[in-house]
Computed example of a mutant assay.
Amino acid sequence: MSAPGPYQIVEADYGSDQAALRAVREAVFIREQGVPAELELDALDPRCRHVLARDAAGTAIGTARLAPDGRIGRMAVLDGWRAHGVGSALLQALLRIARQDGLPRVGLHAQETAIDFYRRHGFSPVGERFEEAGIVHLAMQCRIDRPVAVEDRPAAVVATVAVVAAARRQLAIHSRALDPGLYDHPRVLEALRRFAVAGGGPQVRILLQDAMAVQRAQAPLIALCQRLPSVFALREAGDPVDRENPVALVASDTGSYYLRPLGHRFEGETEHGARARTRQLLRAFDEAWERARPCTELRALGL
């Protein structure tokens, strides 16, 4: 399913953005899910930190909030924009705010249909299911003062998309052969495309360990690299130590990373707002990048 178009995530000003916040929440919670208006609108709103997703025209398409006690809520995305990473981007924006505020953990009440979504983002169940506003929920918590474990392919896709979405101008990707099942996933490809065309001089450096395998597989990401050669740079590790390095990584210039100690597996860890740890990872990447050779054979159109 292709995305309806580009979007951006911004922190909202409750005073000036109140109408946009409520328009999304009323559409999703009140009209779609049948939540009573007196339950959806509460006195906590003005004390919360809110984030908004806006489309290219500036129209609000999603929102979520973070209460002073660390509870995430009112996560809502308009129907036509679901399954395009908007919810993940909103959630990661709130997690970054929570880390900036020094919160050690956050919690939420997940609707039953969204439990797996939050689990993939590192949230764990607390207690038993319960009913709230006529909808089955489960309380969940996430520690944000330490990395979140990534355990399977769906979580790996979520983690990769979140790191790409968090980047401002620079991304670094270290992969043996662009990991089938991850860098050919439609959501990952769309996140990279969106980052590449967003403007502001984005740069994506991709360090491979087996360029020939990528060429043989005709990896979909290479086609994007060929269409946007001013954004994507490709190199192959040449030093024997670098070629045998099992680590895989995607990291941004904002302190977000997803690290896999064994690059042929999806298991690893991800973290946002971890600037010191990300700088450490990028230093090792930069050193290997300088020793690597440009992959000119992957630049030609029509693999």
Rank of each mutant, 00 (worst) to 15 (best):
P68C: 12
T59E: 09
L66M: 13
G80M: 03
D79A: 13
A53W: 00
R105C: 13
R47H: 13
A20W: 04
R96C: 15
A27K: 09
G34P: 01
R96I: 14
S16W: 00
D45W: 03
R49W: 06
H50R: 10
A23S: 14
P36M: 13
R49D: 12
L44K: 07
P46G: 09
L91Q: 02
P46D: 07
A57V: 11
R96W: 09
R47N: 00
L94P: 06
G102R: 06
G62T: 10
F29P: 04
M75K: 02
D42N: 01
L78H: 02
A53L: 00
A76Y: 05
A57D: 09
G70S: 09
A19F: 13
E26T: 13
R22Y: 11
R31V: 14
V86T: 09
A67I: 11
D79W: 04
I72C: 10
G62V: 11
V24L: 08
Q33P: 03
R22S: 08
T63C: 14
R54G: 01
A56V: 12
G70D: 09
W81T: 03
A57F: 08
R105S: 14
V106N: 02
D13P: 06
G80P: 05
L91E: 09
W81H: 05
L39T: 10
P46W: 05
L94T: 10
A93R: 15
P46V: 08
L91K: 06
L78M: 10
T63V: 13
R54C: 08
L52S: 05
T63L: 01
D45Q: 01
A56Q: 12
D17P: 01
D13C: 14
P104E: 04
V24D: 04
G58I: 12
A60M: 07
D79F: 00
P46C: 04
V86F: 03
C48T: 05
C48S: 08
G85I: 15
V86N: 06
P68V: 14
S16Y: 06
G85R: 11
G58D: 02
R54L: 13
W81S: 01
E38M: 12
H50K: 11
L44Y: 07
E38V: 14
A93K: 10
R47S: 11
L52A: 02
L39Q: 15
R82Y: 03
M75G: 10
G85V: 11
V77K: 02
V51K: 03
P68G: 11
G34A: 07
A43I: 06
Y14P: 05
H84Q: 15
A43T: 03
E26Y: 10
R54W: 04
A57R: 11
L91W: 06
R96E: 15
C48Y: 00
P104M: 12
V77D: 07
G107V: 15
Y14I: 12
R31G: 02
L90V: 07
R74D: 02
A57E: 09
L90A: 07
R25D: 01
S88D: 14
P36Q: 12
Y14Q: 05
F29C: 04
G102D: 00
Q100W: 08
G58N: 10
D42R: 08
L44I: 00
R25N: 02
R105H: 14
L90W: 00
